[in-house]
C-alpha cells in the first residue's frame, strides 16, 4: 500500500499543483474582498500539502509481518482490468460517433459491444438486454419526456 499511496499522493499533488499554477493567473483579490483566485489558490495549496501527506504518511508506518508492500496494483488482474479498459474504450467510441450516428444507435452499439464482447453473455441474452434497455430508455426519455437526442441516418 505504501508504493500505491506514494504514487497516488504524488499524482494528486501534481494535479493540485497544476490547479495552483492556473489559479495564479486569476485575480487574487480586490481592495476589500477576495477575488476569483482566492479560493482556488488556497484549495490547491492545501490540496498539495494533504497529497504530500498521503505520499509520505505510510512511510512512518511500522512494517507488518507480511505484505505491507502489497499494493492493490500488485493484485490487479490484467485480464479483468482489460475488461474495464475495453468498456471505457467502447464508451469513448460511443461518445465520438453519437453526434452523427445518433445517440440511440450509438448507445445500442455500445451495449451490444459491452454484453457480447466484454461480458461475453450469450448471443440471445446480450442482444435481448441491449435492445430491451435501449427500447426502454427511448420510450421513457425520447417519447415520454420529449428529450431531443441527436438523431442519425436511421432517423433516431
Amino acid at each position: 500500500m505504501k508504493r500505491t499511496n506514494l504514487i497516488a499522493g504524488l499524482l494528486f499533488a501534481a494535479a493540485f499543483g497544476a490547479c495552483l499554477w492556473d489559479a495564479a493567473s486569476f485575480q487574487y483579490g480586490t481592495e476589500f474582498a477576495p477575488g476569483p483566485g482566492f479560493a482556488p489558490v488556497w484549495l490547491s495549496a492545501i490540496g498539495i500539502a494533504l497529497s504530500l501527506l498521503i505520499a509520505i504518511y505510510p512511510a512512518t508506518d511500522a512494517p507488518d509481518s507480511q505484505g505491507s508492500n502489497a499494493t492493490p496494483s500488485n493484485a490487479i488482474d490484467n485480464r479483468r482490468i482489460l475488461r474495464v479498459a475495453a468498456t471505457l474504450a467502447g464508451l469513448l467510441v460511443m461518445l465520438l460517433v453519437a453526434d452523427w450516428l445518433g445517440l440511440v444507435s450509438a448507445v445500442l452499439l455500445f451495449l451490444l459491444f459491452l454484453t457480447l464482447f466484454v461480458q461475453r453473455l450469450s448471443l440471445a441474452v446480450g442482444i435481448g438486454a441491449s435492445i430491451g434497455t435501449v427500447l426502454f430508455v427511448y420510450l421513457v426519455f425520447v417519447r415520454l419526456l420529449d428529450v431531443p437526442v441527436p438523431s442519425g441516418p436511421l432517423g433516431f
Binding site: L114, L121, A129
Partner: peptide, 13 residues
C-alpha cells in the same frame, strides 16, 4: 451481468 447494461443505458441517457 444483465443488470449492468440496463443500469448503464439508463445512466447514459
Amino acid at each position: 451481468p444483465i443488470l449492468i447494461p440496463i443500469i448503464m443505458g439508463i445512466a447514459l441517457f
